[in-house]
């Protein structure tokens, strides 16, 4: 075995920078002319957006821009995608509601993204965010897993009757049922798998920079897979062509799946490839 080779508990090469405060996480990056973004989020779990008035916020101290879902749509930025198809028992693909990065006409959970305020300082962005006037039409909320698909529940998405995304059976039901019929003993259990918030210690962050000379966007992200981020932002969201978009995952403070992005859908089809 080579010294420090396979099987050796080599002390980590990355530790010195982390132990001396020299790690470089996304929020540690600062560039000249940097502005700060703060999101206006829905305080309601389920509501229509009747109107958004950004005038007062846009006029507030230090504000560079206040942007909404309409601006996003006008620029042709596509919705967020889900990458994996599951075929339901009716033979149809799973139901996939449109997920705009900034809400368009409706919010569907507390924290949903309504608008973004960009200002010279974070404090100014936060102050201005409070001046964005949103007229909501509050709808009943669905929160319980077990009863979400019941007939009397409020519908969340038109494309998903009974709030069902899919019903996916797998296995030979008849054979299994027959085995149960003839079993010596059947044990059963009802259980809940509790909802968790993953909580890597570094909160998510994004820092974008545009070079108008080269027309290139550089995006530093708390990401577990920068290339796939770039591919999807380019192919599905039309943010910029892949060769004009650089995605960097600098030091990332824990992932555990929350900062992951992957796509299994037919990217090739979307790109018009065979």
């Amino acid at each position: 075995m080579a010294e420090n080779g396979v099987g050796a508990s080599v002390r980590r090469k990355e530790d010195y920078r982390f132990l001396t405060g020299k790690g470089s996480y996304t929020d540690d990056l600062n560039v000249v002319g940097q502005t700060h973004a703060y999101f206006v989020r829905s305080p309601h779990a389920h509501a229509t957006i009747n109107s958004i008035d950004t005038a007062a916020a846009a006029a507030a101290d230090g504000v560079v821009a206040v942007l909404t879902g309409d601006d996003l749509a006008a620029d042709g930025i596509g919705p967020l995608i889900c990458g994996v198809n599951v075929t339901s028992d009716d033979g149809e693909p799973h139901r996939a509601p449109v997920h705009s990065a900034l809400a368009q006409g409706k919010v569907n959970y507390v924290g949903d993204h309504v608008a973004v305020v960009i200002a010279e300082t974070l404090a100014e962005a936060k102050d201005a965010a409070e001046k964005v006037e949103v007229d909501y039409g509050i709808l009943p909320a669905v929160t319980d897993t077990a009863t979400a698909a019941d007939d009397d529940q409020q519908q969340i998405h038109e494309v998903a009757p009974n709030n069902q995304c899919y019903n996916w059976p797998f296995g030979d039901k008849a054979a299994v049922d027959a085995a149960f019929e003839s079993a010596h003993k059947v044990s059963s259990l009802d259980l809940v798998n509790n909802r968790m918030v993953t909580n890597p210690m570094e909160p998510r962050a994004a820092a974008g920079e545009y070079n108008s000379g080269t027309e290139e966007i550089t995006l530093h992200l708390t990401t577990q897979n920068p290339h796939v981020h770039r591919l999807v932002m380019s192919a599905f969201n039309q943010l910029a062509p892949e060769h004009k978009l650089r995605v960097v995952g600098p030091d990332v403070g824990g992932g555990f799946g929350v900062k992951i992005f992957r796509v299994l859908r037919r990217v090739g089809c979307r790109l018009g490839l065979p």
């Binding site: 002390r11 990355e14 010195y16 982390f18 132990l19 001396t20 210690m201």
Partner: peptide, 22 residues
């Protein structure tokens, strides 16, 4: 030269992502 506590964190693999470490 690392402080003895910094060195001990390195020697004992007391950090992974490094965010809580300081």
């Amino acid at each position: 030269e690392l402080h003895p506590m910094q060195q001990a964190f390195k020697d004992n693999h007391g950090l992974q992502c490094g965010f809580c470490t300081p």
